[in-house]
Design a protein around this nucleic acid. Structure first.
Lengths: 238, 238
DNA sequence: AAGTGGTCTAGACCACCTT
DNA sequence: AGGTGGTCTAGACCACTTG
């Protein structure tokens, strides 16, 4: 048996400093509320420049383990404020990553005015016109995700001439238009008629749904509701 | 009307460089796939040190807008790989942040062997003993979240002597034991008997549930299943 | 082989906040 | 008022990777 090419713990550099400091926190040697030594002092201890300690501490602070304030110094957080990060990839990538074959189908396409609910979510004016698409994404021939999408024709008039028959609107969108703001929401909802018809849910069964809205410089671009097949779990580990 | 103390866009520093570069990407001037100028060149353009450009670009890369490789340079990502970040605060903080009054109740407490499902989730040995707690968190007197928690007594023997009558296990845990790894999962599940009894769900109704497991240096510490009251939405914006 | 980003250093000035 | 972190600079060496 040969070992995988495992990196030895770094002996120098900001990674070494970072990992040593994390270790002192995680081992309890520096418990919650402890005031850490100043950057200058740590730099002396580790035999490096202050900038190196600074980078290590900055990253530890970003991770939520410590809190830094001028003049007050760096303190171990009482309740480590950590974030869960989820990557929300294109469905195609998500499906192909599991080794399954991806297939896409457009179920419906229409131009509509915006409903009140949508105008609220997307922060749209009253007379907004939207392109509404209903799509289905398959993994190995089985329905995987139902996508209900609305595209603002004010922001993206060229969407009206796209037919979206062969590839999904999400792929077209990411290649076409950048965005500056995103809102993502997760919820558990009762299966509606479309989820029943296309995902094989019993009426009222629990559906895991993601809603995603994007804006470009304050202007709503698109809103999507992604409903997943029964049993879907969204997981992250860090 | 006075304006809020709005910060003018920075004129110098890595923030200025960062925001200018983001702007060029978001405006489409540097479209997907574009190779950016090198750090040296950008430093000349912006009249700053290379380290300043480096920091700006590093942060833009972390945000997923560009991809950097030695020798190859910095490229605008074709499909911006962006992450959704969720803070999962203590329920108490979550409730009090809305202005509501927080109340806690312990419903049940027992020491049990680990079920197969739990042993899988927590990666526990066969003979593991767990402290199982069932708790309810109220907002303004109404049930807000049902917490089903298991604590490994091998990792945390002192949990056995805690009674958890007055404050929740999560608060005790964050103040007592650090962790190095977390797994978080979201799902939509059908309301079980406890959600029906305590959260007012109809049997089988959709419940938004978060499962969270933590380890300290490879050793399972605790696992929690948090079920939310009807209509709960988890949202993030960036 | 060479050019790119990755990192470190030593020094400096500054903004901010706590005391 | 003074000490802390926040940031910038100029220069240097290094690691990686691609041509």
């Amino acid at each position: 048996m040969t070992r995988p090419p495992e990196r030895p713990p770094e002996r120098t550099g900001f990674r070494a400093v970072k990992s040593e400091i994390r270790d002192r926190i995680e081992s309890g040697r520096w418990g919650p509320g402890t005031l850490l030594p100043g950057e200058v002092e740590l730099a002396e201890e580790f035999g490096c420049a202050r900038a190196t300690v600074n980078r290590a501490l900055r990253e530890i602070a970003e991770a939520g383990l410590v809190e830094r304030r001028r003049r007050a110094g760096t303190r171990v957080r009482a309740a480590p404020l950590r974030e869960a990060r989820f990557r929300i990839p294109l469905v195609r990538a998500e499906i192909e990553a599991t080794g399954a074959r991806y297939r896409y189908a457009l179920l419906d396409r229409a131009v509509t005015p915006a409903s009140d609910r949508l105008r609220g979510r997307m922060e749209l004016p009253e007379d907004a016109r939207l392109l509404r698409l209903t799509c289905l994404h398959f993994a190995d021939g089985l329905p995987y995700q139902l996508e209900q999408r609305w595209i603002s024709l004010a922001a993206l008039p060229q969407a009206e001439t796209q037919d979206f028959a062969d590839s999904g609107p999400n792929e077209w969108l990411v290649a076409t238009v950048p965005y500056t703001e995103v809102e993502i929401a997760f919820e558990a909802a009762a299966a509606g008629p479309e989820a029943v018809a296309h995902l094989g849910f019993a009426p009222g069964a629990p559906v895991f749904a993601i809603e995603r809205t994007t804006w470009l410089r304050g202007r709503a671009v698109t809103h999507a509701r992604l409903s997943h097949r029964p049993g879907h779990r969204m997981t992250t580990r860090y």
